[in-house]
Amino acid sequence: MSQTLSIASWNINSVRARLDIVERFLTEESPDILCLQETKVVNDTFPAGLFRQRGYNHQVLNGQPMHHGVAILSKIPIREDDRLDWQANGEARHVGVRLDNGVRIENVYVPAGGDVPDREVNPKFGQKLDFLERMIQWSSTLEDKPTILTGDFNIAPMECDVWSHKQLLNVVSHTPIECEILARLQESNDWVDIGRKFYPAPQRLYTWWSYRARDWAESDRGRRLDHMWMTRDVAEKAVSHRVVEPIRGWSRPSDHVPIITEFAF
Rank of each mutant, 00 (worst) to 15 (best):
R204P: 01
A48P: 01
P146N: 13
N101G: 07
V172T: 04
V110Y: 09
W250I: 04
R196Q: 11
R248K: 13
P146F: 09
I260T: 05
D233R: 12
V116D: 08
K75I: 00
S173W: 05
W229S: 06
H227M: 05
H241V: 06
N57F: 11
W191D: 02
G151S: 10
S173H: 12
V41C: 15
V172G: 02
M66K: 15
L149A: 07
I105M: 07
T147W: 13
W229C: 03
E91G: 06
V95M: 03
G113E: 03
N107T: 08
R242V: 02
R196V: 05
L26K: 02
L149C: 03
G222C: 06
D82H: 14
C35F: 04
N62W: 12
N122F: 04
T261W: 06
R196F: 13
P123Q: 08
S173V: 08
G69A: 08
N189D: 10
I7S: 03
E91K: 15
W86F: 15
R184D: 02
E23L: 07
S164Q: 06
G113Q: 06
M66D: 14
L50Q: 07
T39E: 05
G90S: 04
C35H: 01
R104Y: 14
V244S: 10
D82K: 12
Q127H: 13
N154C: 05
D82Q: 13
V172A: 02
A238S: 13
A201K: 06
V22H: 01
A48R: 15
C35G: 01
Y56K: 07
S2W: 09
